[in-house]
Design a protein around this nucleic acid. Structure first.
Lengths: 104, 104
DNA sequence: TGTACATATGAACACATCTTCATAAATTTG
DNA sequence: CAAATTTATGAAGATGTGTTCATATGTACA
């Protein structure tokens, strides 16, 4: 019997890339932050901490992680740092997950 | 300034659930398996190993992981075990990722 | 029954991740 | 300048994950 191999051309590199993004996103706190930044153009660390109820340090670490991995931007103003989503892509992933599934 | 909080009702529990699924999926080998099972109703371990070029044991471990976490089914026939996607949801996640983004 | 084949399993190790804590650094304000 | 505020950082420990290796289990077939 014939095995249909990667019909849409999902090569090893692409799998790596997708996995990388998913890994970056696959954490409740980080998902919470992303979801928040989806509806607020930019927010300070304190905003985020207060809204999703997480420790300052923990939040900062997660923000840094996401910034390093390329899905967040940051802008410094005064003693605040404003974070925002870098690419629309992540937004779309979340929207997709929110819409079409994950009812397990 | 007002912070818009979780407009679509993404509560903590939902974040956990989404993160759980994403974590399960967020690995190149597992993504490869899923992508393969998307275009092939069911496949044996050997089929998968040969197609995506992974060791038998490694493949088996990943299959088991995904089965335990509830995104794969398995059916035994003779000395073969046939694996298949359990829920459409995962398929949709992958399709979404394939279509709408991840161009980072 | 014995041999080959298909799959699972478990231990062990390396490595990554998450979280907390204490503290540093930068900035504003009194 | 001193105190308060905001954010970052780094160490440390706990925990989780990925991979390999050796081997077990189950099945088919000569």
């Amino acid at each position: 019997m014939e095995i249909k191999v990667v019909p849409h051309g999902i090569d090893a590199e692409k799998l790596e890339r997708i996995a990388f993004i998913l890994k970056t996103v696959a954490h409740p706190v980080r998902l919470g932050i992303i979801s928040l930044l989806e509806s607020n153009k930019e927010l300070t660390v304190t905003d985020i901490c207060e809204t999703i109820q997480t420790e300052q340090s923990l939040t900062s670490h997660h923000l840094n992680t996401m910034k390093l991995k390329g899905i967040l931007n940051s802008r410094k103003k005064g003693r605040n740092v404003f974070y925002s989503l870098k690419e629309k892509d992540v937004t779309q992933i979340i929207r997709c997950l929110d819409n079409c599934g994950c009812n397990m």
